[in-house]
Measured scan of single mutants.
Amino acid sequence: MTFKLIINGKTLKGETTTEAVDAATAEKVLKQYANDNGIDGEWTYDDATKTFTVTE
């Protein structure tokens, strides 16, 4: 399955996707991606669209 991350950061905005077997696995990968890029904020997840959003 494809999961999307929408980034609403102070210095970085955009989106990325990852392939994962489930939402929990995708969340780990996407949170690591955000952490690697210095993004720390509030996370939400929409199961209907398989989209995570992080807002700083």
Rank of each mutant, 00 (worst) to 15 (best):
E15D: 06
K13T: 10
G9R: 05
G14T: 14
K10T: 11
T25N: 06
V21E: 11
T16R: 10
F3H: 04
K10P: 09
K28A: 12
A24P: 09
V54Q: 01
Y33F: 11
D47Y: 07
V29T: 10
N37L: 15
L12S: 10
G9H: 09
T49G: 05
V21C: 12
I6S: 04
G9E: 03
T51K: 03
A20M: 03
W43V: 02
K31I: 06
E42V: 14
A48H: 13
T53E: 05
W43C: 02
E27I: 12
K31R: 15
K13R: 12
E19C: 12
F3Y: 14
F52E: 00
T11H: 14
K4W: 11
L30A: 02
A48Y: 10
G9T: 15
D46T: 05
Y45D: 00
E56Y: 08
E15Q: 11
T2N: 08
E56V: 13
F52A: 00
N35K: 15
I7P: 01
I6T: 05
K50A: 06
T25G: 07
L12A: 09
T11N: 14
T55C: 06
D40Y: 15
N8R: 11
T17R: 08
T11E: 09
M1W: 13
T25A: 13
E15G: 10
E15T: 13
D36T: 08
A26G: 03
N8E: 08
K4D: 03
D40V: 15
E56R: 04
V21D: 11
T53P: 00
W43D: 00
D36G: 06
N8D: 09
A26C: 02
K13Q: 12
Y33Q: 03
T51W: 02
E15P: 04
V21P: 15
T11K: 12
Y33I: 09
Y45F: 06
K4N: 06
T51N: 03
D22W: 03
V29H: 08
T49K: 07
T17M: 11
E15L: 10
D36Q: 11
Y33N: 02
T18H: 06
V29W: 12
T49C: 04
K50N: 07
A23Y: 13
F52Y: 06
T11L: 10
V54T: 03
T51Y: 03
K13A: 08
L12W: 15
D46C: 08
I6P: 00
L5H: 00
D22C: 05
N8C: 13
E42Q: 11
T49A: 08
W43S: 00
I39K: 01
V54G: 00
E27S: 07
Y45K: 01
N37M: 15
A26V: 02
L12M: 14
A34W: 03
G14K: 13
D47K: 08
Y33H: 04
M1Q: 13
E56S: 08
I39T: 03
T18M: 10
T53L: 05
Y45R: 01
D46Y: 04
Y45G: 00
A26Q: 00
E15M: 13
T18C: 14
F3S: 01
T18I: 15
G38W: 05
E19F: 15
F52T: 00
E19Y: 15
D46I: 04
L5R: 00
F52K: 00
T44M: 09
T44N: 10
I6C: 06
G41H: 01
L5F: 04
A34F: 03
K13S: 10
N35P: 01
I39R: 01
V54A: 03
A34D: 00
I39V: 11
F52C: 01
Y33V: 05
M1I: 15
G41V: 02
K13D: 06
A48T: 11
V21W: 12
L12Y: 13
D47V: 11
K31Q: 07
N37D: 03
I7A: 04
A24N: 09
Y45V: 01
A26D: 00
A23H: 09
L12R: 10
K13C: 12
A24R: 09
G9C: 11
N8G: 05
T49H: 06
T16L: 15
A26K: 00
K4S: 06
D36P: 01
T17W: 14
Y33M: 05
I7R: 02
V21S: 12
K50P: 00
G41R: 00
A48W: 09
Y33T: 03
G41T: 01
K10Y: 09
A48Q: 11
D46V: 05
D40F: 14
L5Q: 01
F3G: 02
T51D: 01
K50Q: 11
D22V: 03
D46M: 04
T17K: 07
E27T: 04
G14A: 13
A34P: 01
D36N: 10
K31G: 04
T49E: 07
A23E: 07
T25K: 07
G38L: 06
L12Q: 11
E42T: 13
G38C: 08
T2H: 10
K10W: 10
D22E: 04
T55N: 08
T53Y: 10
T53S: 06
L12D: 07
D46K: 03
N35I: 15
E27N: 05
I39C: 04
K50T: 04
E56P: 10
I7G: 02
I39W: 08
T16G: 04
N35L: 15
K28S: 09
V29N: 11
G38D: 07
G41M: 02
K28N: 07
L30W: 04
E27Q: 10
Q32I: 08
D22K: 03
K31C: 05
D40N: 14
N35T: 14
G38V: 03
T51V: 06
D40K: 14
D22L: 03
T18R: 06
K31F: 06
V21N: 11
E27M: 13
I6M: 06
L5P: 01
A34K: 01
N8V: 14
M1E: 11
E42G: 05
K28Y: 09
D36K: 09
G9P: 03
I6D: 03
K50Y: 08
V54E: 00
T44H: 12
K50L: 12
